[in-house]
């Protein structure tokens, strides 16, 4: 990593701050949410953080549509999409997360004067081909897509591997990989027929407690609870 400019806030801190804002909003706490208030237009770190958080930066808008078309929120998302398109050699996770941000823009920031870009094609062969530990890891990296209405085809495909994802949740908790566990658990909260013996609700609560307030874990757990009623 290049040295941070004097006084610059590290990207990880920008991501953590933004994630904290999203988690608060999903829990119905804090000030009314506006993505442009925590991730600013024209700020490189903000745009990078928005690209990292992907659809989760817009997750609170799935609760209600308070966005002003053409406003600052729309502008900062457009800037992030323009600044960080997946390259030709981008990983499948990178393409999917970009697609998730585009889909979320279509779904939650509709009504602007300019149309949003079309979601890029994203390969899904890995959903059936990956061994379960790899599948769970990859799915956890795409936890932001576990939002209402996003990636319906991916959700259908993942529903064929619910048991395997549940095994991935077990492995992640045992490894104390709270971020992975929260991400997989969040997807499981969206999927049908999760094994009852997994104890998903208790598991999400456990992960939240053990992660000691890690902001991105908090986002996943809050989203699972807010949108799918899982966890406590």
């Amino acid at each position: 990593m290049a040295e941070q400019a004097q006084g610059a806030v590290p990207l990880s801190a920008v991501i953590a701050d933004a994630a904290t804002g999203v988690a608060l909003a999903l829990r119905g706490e804090g000030d009314p949410y506006a993505v442009s208030r925590i991730l600013r237009q024209g700020d490189a770190a903000s745009l990078a953080a928005l690209r990292v958080l992907g659809a989760d930066a817009l997750a609170p808008y799935a609760l209600d549509h308070r966005v002003c078309p053409g406003g600052d929120d729309e502008m900062v998302v457009r800037q992030a999409l323009t600044a960080y398109p997946p390259g030709t050699d981008a990983s499948e996770v990178s393409v999917w997360s970009y697609r998730g941000l585009v889909e979320a823009s279509h779904s939650y920031l509709s009504g602007g004067a300019e149309p949003w870009p079309q979601p890029p094609q994203a390969a899904a062969g890995w959903v059936t081909a990956d061994p379960w530990p790899k599948l769970a890891h990859r799915v956890s990296q795409l936890a932001a897509l576990a939002l209402p209405g996003l990636a319906p085809g991916l959700a259908d495909d993942l529903a064929t591997r619910t048991d395997d994802l549940a095994r991935g949740f077990v492995r992640a908790v045992r490894r104390r990989d709270w971020l992975q566990a929260a991400g997989v658990g969040r997807w499981l909260s969206r999927l049908p027929k999760v094994p009852q013996t997994l104890g998903l609700d208790a598991g999400l609560a456990f992960v939240r407690q053990m992660s000691d307030g890690e902001p991105r874990v908090a986002v996943h757990v809050a989203a699972a609870h807010r949108f799918y009623g899982r966890g406590w």
């Binding site: 077990v170 492995r171 045992r174 490894r175």
Partner: peptide
């Protein structure tokens, strides 16, 4: 049924 579901994740964990 319980063992069939969860043995793979336990095995993976402790093999690791």
């Amino acid at each position: 049924g319980y063992l069939r579901l969860w043995l793979p994740s336990w095995l993976e964990s402790w093999l690791e």
